[in-house]
């Protein structure tokens, strides 16, 4: 009994160390953002600012169109998440509910796009978007991300988990495809759909690279993109301000995560299950 509890302690120490490494940077970011410039350099390691100040936040609000950035990010992430959910539901439903030739092949082809690296799509998509005249607009960011292979896969998994008799009972009632989808299937998989929507939202909120390629006007920047303005390659001195923007950028995803972490972790866990 005693030996086993000691052995347990051993592993707890390792894991607590890991938790410390993972959480300390976040905490450090938060505390730095409330420190005055002097304090940042004089008591860098102090976990709690001696005199918490809002200066950094006020400075950013005053000198940068921060609200505009937040709105831009929200707009792009919201539309992408909604669209990914809708297109994924429709496609997954077709795969679950209908029989048609080459079904498996099409499904695998769609799923494989998950593994096509950004390097491959970078140049051609940029050219395509410029031909469509949507460069430097939010639509340029949104357009290539209207559908998602992982979304199709996960929603199909969720739909497959519905007991078959429920679907068959609907069929016997002469329920058409649309009734079946909206009144039987969707209410049953609502939790996974919501969780997946949140995950999509977080991912596109955090997206840096594609907005970087598409958006040139500073007024159209998203938050992660705006972050770049607060650092220089040599390591600028405005750390408090940079950290304040970083906090604002991370807050929505972190809050979403904290409020429904069980859901979100479950959704992520499923994404590793290869069917």
């Amino acid at each position: 009994m005693k030996i086993s509890s000691i052995r347990g302690w051993h592993w707890h120490v390792v894991l607590c160390g890991a938790v410390l490494i993972q959480l300390w940077p976040l905490f450090f970011m938060l505390s730095t953002s409330f420190k005055s410039m002097d304090e940042i350099f004089q008591s860098t390691l102090n976990p709690i600012p001696a005199v918490p100040v809002m200066n950094n936040y006020l400075y950013v609000l005053k000198n940068f169109p921060l609200v505009q950035y937040i709105f831009n990010t929200f707009f792009i992430a919201g539309i992408i998440a909604a669209s990914k959910i809708i297109t994924s539901i429709l496609a997954a439903f077709a795969f679950v509910y209908y029989e048609f030739s080459h079904k498996e092949k099409l499904f695998n082809a769609l799923l494989l796009t998950f593994f096509i690296p950004i390097t491959v799509v970078m140049v051609p998509n940029y050219l395509l978007l410029s031909r469509l005249g949507v460069l430097n607009t939010p639509w340029g960011v949104i357009l290539p991300q209207l559908a998602d292979a992982m979304g199709i896969f996960l929603i199909r998994q969720a739909m497959r988990a519905i007991p078959r008799p429920l679907i068959e009972a609907g069929k016997l009632e002469n329920a058409g495809a649309w009734v079946m989808l909206t009144r039987i299937i969707l209410p049953l998989i609502k939790p996974s759909v919501i969780a997946m929507g949140i995950v999509f939202f977080i991912n596109s909120w955090n997206d840096y690279f594609w907005p970087l390629l598409v958006l040139q006007d500073k007024s159209r920047y998203t938050l992660p993109l705006a972050l770049q303005m607060f650092i220089s390659a040599e390591g600028g001195s405005e750390w408090g301000i940079a950290m304040a923007v970083a906090v604002l950028t991370s807050l929505p995803p972190l809050l979403l995560y904290l409020s429904c972490q069980r859901f979100i972790i479950h959704t992520f866990m499923q994404s590793g299950v290869k069917g």
Binding site: N206, P224, L227, A246, T249
Partner: peptide, 14 residues
């Protein structure tokens, strides 16, 4: 898992 919800841009600057 918490850091996984943070943007890589934030991670970089941090």
């Amino acid at each position: 898992f918490a850091p996984s919800t943070v943007s890589l841009a934030v991670a970089s600057i941090l």
